[in-house]
Every structure is written in C-alpha cells, then in structure tokens.
Amino acid sequence: LGLPKMEVFQEYYGLPPPPGAIGPFLRLNPGDIVELTKAEAEQNWWEGRNTSTNEIGWFPCNRVKPY
C-alpha cells in the first residue's frame, strides 16, 4: 500500500510561496519522488514528503506528475 508517489518534472524553490499559513514549502528538484501526505484534486497546493531529502512541506501540484 503506502502513500501515492509523484515525480517532480519542474523545480520549486518556494516561489510562489504556499498561500496563507498552511505550512512550509517543500523544495523540489526534477526527478525527485514525492510521497503525497495531503492532496485533494480540487486544490492547487499539496503536501508531501520528498523522498530525496525526507523533508515534508507544501508545493504547487502542477510541478509533479504520476510516478
């Protein structure tokens, strides 16, 4: 089972920042694999864990694709 995984195809370094105070941003590099921890199809921002860095944070969902 486990959490859904997504592959990063466009880098994200915190700009634009996540809206409001939902949480810290998650740095993404192309090729990184992100395990989704909070993701809803109608939301533009998802939370996940970058398996390369083990960091957890928020990122724009348009930077990832199904793994």
Rank of each mutant, 00 (worst) to 15 (best):
P4C: 14
K38D: 07
T51I: 15
P4M: 15
E35Y: 10
C61I: 06
R63S: 14
G14W: 03
W46R: 11
S52C: 09
E40A: 08
L15P: 00
Q10Y: 06
P66A: 10
G31E: 06
L26C: 04
A39W: 11
T51D: 11
A39P: 11
P4T: 15
E7P: 02
S52Q: 15
V8H: 01
R63W: 03
L36M: 06
F9D: 12
N44A: 13
E35H: 09
G48A: 06
F59L: 03
L28R: 03
C61P: 06
P66N: 12
T51K: 09
F9G: 07
K5R: 12
L15V: 14
L28K: 03
V8D: 00
N44M: 15
G48H: 00
P30H: 15
Y67T: 15
K38M: 07
P4F: 14
A21V: 07
E42K: 14
G31W: 02
W46D: 00
F25V: 13
R63K: 11
Y12D: 01
Y12C: 03
A41I: 06
E40C: 08
L1F: 12
G23R: 14
C61T: 11
G57A: 04
Y12R: 01
L26A: 03
Y13F: 10
P16F: 03
P30D: 08
P24R: 09
Y12H: 00
G23C: 08
G31T: 04
P30Y: 12
F25W: 12
I56R: 12
K65A: 06
K65E: 08
F25D: 08
E35T: 10
A39N: 08
E11T: 12
P66D: 09
R49H: 06
N54D: 14
E55F: 05
Q10A: 05
E35N: 05
D32L: 01
G14V: 01
E7H: 06
T37L: 15
G2H: 10
E35L: 10
Y67W: 15
P18W: 05
N50K: 07
F9A: 07
R27Y: 09
Q43Y: 10
Q10H: 05
R27H: 07
F9S: 09
K5D: 08
P16H: 01
P16C: 03
R27T: 12
S52K: 12
K5C: 10
D32T: 02
L36P: 13
A21D: 13
G48N: 00
P17F: 06
V34A: 04
L15T: 15
W58V: 09
Q10D: 06
F59Q: 01
P60W: 01
W58Q: 00
W45P: 02
R49V: 08
F59S: 02
G31R: 08
D32C: 03
K65F: 05
E7T: 05
P16T: 02
Q43K: 09
I22Y: 14
R49E: 08
R27C: 12
N54I: 01
N29G: 14
P30C: 14
V8E: 01
L3S: 07
K65V: 08
K65T: 08
N50G: 01
G2R: 14
P24E: 09
P19Q: 04
E40W: 08
G57Q: 01
N62I: 07
I22Q: 11
I56T: 09
E40N: 05
T37P: 04
G31P: 01
P4I: 14
G48Q: 02
T51C: 12
L15F: 14
P66I: 06
Q10C: 05
V64D: 01
W46Q: 06
